[in-house]
Write a protein that binds this DNA or RNA. Structure first.
Lengths: 195, 195
DNA sequence: AGCTCAAGTCAACGGGCGTGGACATATAAA
DNA sequence: TTTATATGTCCACGCCCGTTGACTTGAGCT
């Protein structure tokens, strides 16, 4: 019945897009190739043809928005504010920015055996290392991990655990506390009181 | 072939135990009832018989170690140190204490649709609310969420993402920074400098 | 126009899953 | 010893999954 127009590149993009949307809302295991193909208006078999396997498709999705993290002119000084912005943003499926989507994509499938290696690598390469490279001083990876722990935790709490104790009260004080926490997490001195 | 001795209570406990072990290492979706039953040396069908369904079994596992969180004489004053201890403990599958196991159990299956509601409820009831009740002042749930974000994030980073930047350098400074972060996350004043 | 090959569809496979009903057996009562 | 019931096993069903190979059809070239 009415086979779609034949455009390999467009079809590939469509599948990549629908896959991204699906993987953003459910974990690797819980997304079926038939769902993805259905969203793209394409047959399932094309996944194997274009991406080799489900893992290949997932890997490609993660590589897709590569390098968009931290590239938007974030400096060592604006990093805490930027992290605070990410951690406290209200995200209704629509107005998400790429940065949050990327992180959520990674977190959603973090504990899926088949996707584990891909997720780990993508996290190190696209999230942890960029942040660690941005800050300087000693133990940059440790301080980056500290700050990212807070970001990851709050993201999980709000989106996955559906606990939004941050939205029930005023946003301003929450943002203030967050900012303070990120600053001291990233600071060099143990009890740093930056800015 | 050689049917096991008949002891309903013991069998139930055995299944509960092996289920707990499995769910601790893989997410809800990735653990099969046949694995659990196999570990317990029992047939799969007994899961349905004793727990009704896989969801029922999972729910029972989460209810199992109920109330062990925070009950070990943790007070408002010792809370930050306790959280620091949890967040920086080296956990080799063996020496895990119940508290960490419980949290990890929840986090592992956090993004499994079938287990979502169970996980959310268990988290609120057994983790968030106890902490919020322990601290006092205004917006206790918000401050508890802040601190738990850090704990959750660091736990995920270390166990699921397999990023242990905390272990590569000296433990002491990490613990010091953690303690400081937990304190100011739980403090009443935005820039609290407790103790 | 006719030809050709990429692009897309279709049907089926092998496998794992959770679940339920029919059957076997050890234990405890009579 | 016989009987009854809780306890455990076996088997198969139905479903969904990722993957594959054979087939069909569109687009582009000559």
């Amino acid at each position: 019945m009415s086979p779609r127009v034949k455009n390999a590149a467009a079809t590939r993009e469509a599948m990549l897009a629908s896959a991204g949307r699906r993987f953003l809302q459910e974990s690797y295991e819980n997304v079926g190739l038939r769902d993805i193909a259905g969203d793209a208006g394409v047959d399932v078999a094309l996944v194997s043809r274009y991406f080799g396997s489900k893992e290949g498709l997932f890997r490609e999705v993660l590589r897709g928005s590569k390098g968009e993290w931290l590239d938007a002119g974030v400096t060592r000084e604006t990093l805490p504010a930027w992290l605070t912005c990410l951690a406290t943003r209200v995200h209704r499926q629509e107005d998400d920015r790429q940065d949050l989507e990327r992180l959520l994509l990674i977190l959603r499938s973090a504990s899926s055996p088949k996707a584990a290696r891909i997720v780990h690598d993508s996290f190190r390469e696209n999230v942890l290392t960029p942040v660690a490279n941005l800050i300087d001083g000693e133990d940059p990876e440790m301080r980056a991990s500290l700050a990212l722990s807070l970001l990851i935790g709050s993201t999980i709490l709000r989106t996955i655990m559906e606990v939004d104790a941050f939205s029930t009260c005023d946003v301003a004080p929450v943002r203030e506390r967050m900012l303070s926490l990120f600053k001291s997490a990233l600071a060099q001195a143990p009890r740093g009181e930056a800015a």
